[in-house]
Design a protein around this nucleic acid. Structure first.
Lengths: 182, 182
DNA sequence: GTCTATACATCGATAGAC
DNA sequence: GTCTATCGATGTATAGAC
């Protein structure tokens, strides 16, 4: 079951999320296509399992970090880990953070894993002084923008993602500056 | 020909870019599916025509703007127009700015329309003091990030896009500040 | 749980008449 | 240019034997 999902990720990596078909997946795991229905009620159920698994991968990825004590540096390290995770597997990123599969909505329990990651992210942002929802939104948009621009225009490179630290510094400074003005 | 592309856009708007099938398109324009091959050599050729058309729409959209004389305000108005254009039709945005269609590469002449828009954008950015390629990249990533976050997490709303002006101000100020330090 | 067999649908593309 | 007819490939899903 877990190994089937792992093979599904391999397929997604090499042939895109659209390359994950039940026939191909079955062939890859040494079974016939109908046999997969012993593990997943439908193809959407497979995607749901992948969604939950991907979020757990992400959570494990950031939980394994040794964050610097300085909150600003901690935020940089944390976001860098996210960017690396995001860019190393575009198909996974698409499934986790974009509406790419027609009709797919994560189940309640799968969505919980996603929320867990968001909560972790917010706590790191909070420590660095990013507290207001507006500021959290902007920071997420900026980081996501780097990831998307990187994948759309220079896949595999780092023309955009290399600006991560600078943008974080700029944004944290801006928050401090605005706070001082009040 | 142009009207067929227009109907294809309608299909994309209502059923996603994946909902644009030759059968559905033919039905919508009152023809049979094989008849479309009198206008497009293949489905990818249809997408290519849509790509060129969408870029021409975008170019017309920003060319119709009366930009303020102040370069900073001009940049805000320009980017706001882009964000509005992008968010009002997610499927169009996906075709123009993401790698969503497997195997689709814009033809040389279609790509020229896209380059025309980019050149126009760069000139507006230049006037506002965004000159270095790094700065252009960052600004594009930030604006694109707002658009993507908006579409992925709050389609139809403005929770993210409303921060556009503030982010532009922040970035232009940062450029000025860095320039002063040299 | 895994198989064979098959139903059923969708889609892109071609052949050839008009 | 538009049609009918059809091919061939691909995909999800189900029935039923083992």
């Amino acid at each position: 079951m877990a190994s089937i999902v792992a093979v599904a990720w391999e397929l997604a990596r090499s042939h895109g999320i659209g390359g994950v078909t039940l026939h191909a997946l079955a062939r890859e795991v040494g079974m016939r296509q109908p046999s997969l229905y012993a593990y997943f009620d439908s193809k959407l159920a497979l995607f749901d399992a992948m969604f939950a698994d991907g979020n757990r991968q992400l959570l494990a990825h950031v939980d394994a970090l040794r964050l610097p004590s300085d909150p600003r540096n901690a935020l940089k390290v944390y976001m860098r880990a996210f960017v690396d995770f995001a860019t190393e597997d575009p198909a996974r990123q698409a499934l986790l953070f974009q509406r790419i599969i027609p009709g797919f909505e994560p189940s309640e329990e799968s969505y919980a894993a996603a929320q867990q990651f968001m909560a972790r992210s917010v706590s790191v942002m909070n420590a660095a002084g990013v507290v207001d929802q507006d500021d959290i939104d902007c920071l997420i948009a900026m980081v996501g923008g780097l990831v998307d621009a990187q994948q759309s225009n220079d896949p595999g490179g780092h023309r955009w993602t290399r600006h991560l630290d600078r943008l974080i510094d700029m944004y944290l400074d801006d928050i401090k500056r605005r706070r001082r003005r009040r």
